[in-house]
Design a protein around this nucleic acid. Structure first.
Lengths: 233, 233
DNA sequence: GAGTGGTCTAGACCACGTT
DNA sequence: ACGTGGTCTAGACCACTCC
C-alpha cells in the first residue's frame, strides 16, 4: 500500500538525489498520483506537507517548484517555565517583584504598541528552580484588550499561566537573542561577572490588537534551548 | 460553506472560551462533522492541525483532549548566511580560516560523534556583511559519511552551501544559547568588550550516521533571530 | 482557455486501545 | 467488542494564474 508518507519520502529522496534541483518543477499532483498509483488526495497531502516545511513552493497553475534558498527550519518548543523546571525534576519557585499600571505611552512603543492612552499592566516576576533564579519575566499586558488582568492576583499565579488559560490569541512573534545583561538582570538573576543572558521576546495579538509583550531573560551559561527538527526523511 | 479552517477556529474559540478546559474531551470527528455539517475528512483536517500545534492531543479510541500544559511553539527559519546577508541588502564576504583533517577521537565526542578512527574534516570560516564579521562557523564533517568533502575547495564555496546542495540528511537537531565568547570568537568576530555571542549548534544525521556538526557564533549585540508563529487562529 | 493546486464529499477499511 | 482516530478512494467543483 502506498501512503502519503511514502510519496513524501520518495519525492524528498529524488530532490536530494538531484533529480529536481532548486528551481525545478516537480510533477503535478495528478502525475504523482498516477506514478505511485494513489488517489490525488494522497499525493496532495504528501506535497502539501513538504511545502509546509519550505522545501518546495506551490502556486496554482504554475505548479510546484523546489525552493531555491533551502534554509532549514526548526520547530522550537517554548515551554511554560514551571513545566520546564518540574520536568527537570527541580522544585519550582515563583515571586512577583513588581506590579504597576501605566498609561500606554512612548515607553511601550515597539513592544506592546498599545492604543494611545490605553492602560498597560506592567509586571516583573522571577521564576526559580531549586531556589536558584531561572528566568526573569518582564511583561506588559494591554488592559484594553484584557481587562480581567487588572483584578488577578499575580502573587499567586504567574502571568504566563494565567494568560495561557484565560486569553486567546491569534498570532505571535518571537525574537531570540544574546545580550549583555542590564543591572537589573545581573542582580535579579544573580549572574556571574561577564555572564550573558539569553533573551526570548514574544509579542502576541488577538486579531489586530496587541495582547501582551514579554521579555524572558535566562542566565546564558546555564540555559540552552533545543529543538526537534522540522524537515523529515 | 463550512471549511476546515472554520472548524479549526470554532474549536479554538470554544477551548479558549473555557467550554473545554485543559484535560477535557472534545467531541469526536464524527460529532463535529455532524455539528458543522461537513464530511468527516474536513473535521479531521481541522483537529489534526490543532494537534500539530500541540493544543490538543489525540489517541485512538480515547478521543481528543485539550492539552494540559499548553507550551507554545515557534517555527524558526535558519537561513543560509549568504542569503540572509544579501536579503538585508549587504555585501556578502567569506573567508576560510582553517582546514584540517583529524582522526575521529575524543575531541569530537558530543559533537560529531564519529565512528572510532573515522577521519573528520574540521573547518573554520568567517562570513562577513559589508566587510564586518557576521558569523563564525566551526564545522566538523564525517569523511566516512561524506567522502566527497575531502576534495572540495572550501576557499571558494562555503561548507554550508556545498552541503545543502550535495548531501542529504534525514534528521537534525539545534541548540540555541547565549555564551561568553572564547578568545578566538573575540578576535575573529571583533567583539566589543563584554559583548556576548549568540550560538546556534546544529547536528545532522543521515539515518544513524552523523553527517556534520556546526557551531555558528554571532555577535550578540548585533544579531537577533526572529520566528513566525506556529499556533494560528 | 486550460492546467494547476485547494478543498470538500461520502464512503470505506483498518489500527489501535479502552472497556 | 466497539468506538475512536488514521488514512485512502474516486469524484467533484472551484480559484487562481499563466498562456
Amino acid at each position: 500500500m502506498t501512503g502519503y508518507r511514502d510519496i513524501k519520502e520518495a519525492v524528498l529522496r529524488r530532490i536530494h538525489a538531484g533529480e529536481w534541483p532548486p528551481g525545478a518543477l516537480i510533477p503535478s499532483e495528478a502525475d504523482l498520483a498516477a506514478e505511485y498509483g494513489t488517489a490525488r488526495g494522497t499525493a496532495n497531502r504528501a506535497i502539501r506537507e513538504l511545502a509546509e516545511t519550505g522545501l518546495v513552493e506551490r502556486r496554482r497553475r504554475a505548479g510546484t517548484r523546489v525552493t531555491h534558498r533551502a534554509g532549514r527550519s526548526a520547530l522550537v518548543a517554548i515551554p511554560i517555565v514551571r513545566a520546564e523546571i518540574e520536568a527537570a525534576g527541580r522544585r519550582y519557585g515563583y515571586a512577583l517583584l513588581d506590579r504597576r499600571i501605566e498609561p500606554g505611552d512612548q515607553r511601550h512603543i515597539g513592544r506592546l504598541d498599545p492604543q494611545a492612552g490605553a492602560p498597560v499592566l506592567a509586571l516583573t516576576c522571577l521564576h526559580l528552580a531549586d531556589g536558584e533564579p531561572h528566568q526573569l519575566e518582564d511583561r506588559l499586558i494591554g488592559l484594553d484588550v484584557v481587562p480581567d488582568a487588572r483584578d488577578v492576583d499575580f502573587t499567586a499565579t504567574s502571568p504566563n499561566e494565567w494568560l495561557v488559560r484565560a486569553v486567546p490569541y491569534s498570532r505571535s512573534e518571537h525574537i531570540f537573542s544574546a545580550a549583555t545583561p542590564t543591572e537589573d538582570d545581573r542582580g535579579r538573576l544573580r549572574l556571574r561577572p561577564d555572564e550573558p543572558v539569553f533573551l526570548i521576546e514574544r509579542r502576541t495579538w488577538l486579531g489586530a490588537k496587541p495582547v501582551t509583550w514579554v521579555r524572558l531573560a535566562h542566565p546564558g551559561a546555564r540555559y540552552r534551548m533545543a529543538s526537534r527538527d522540522h524537515d523529515a526523511a
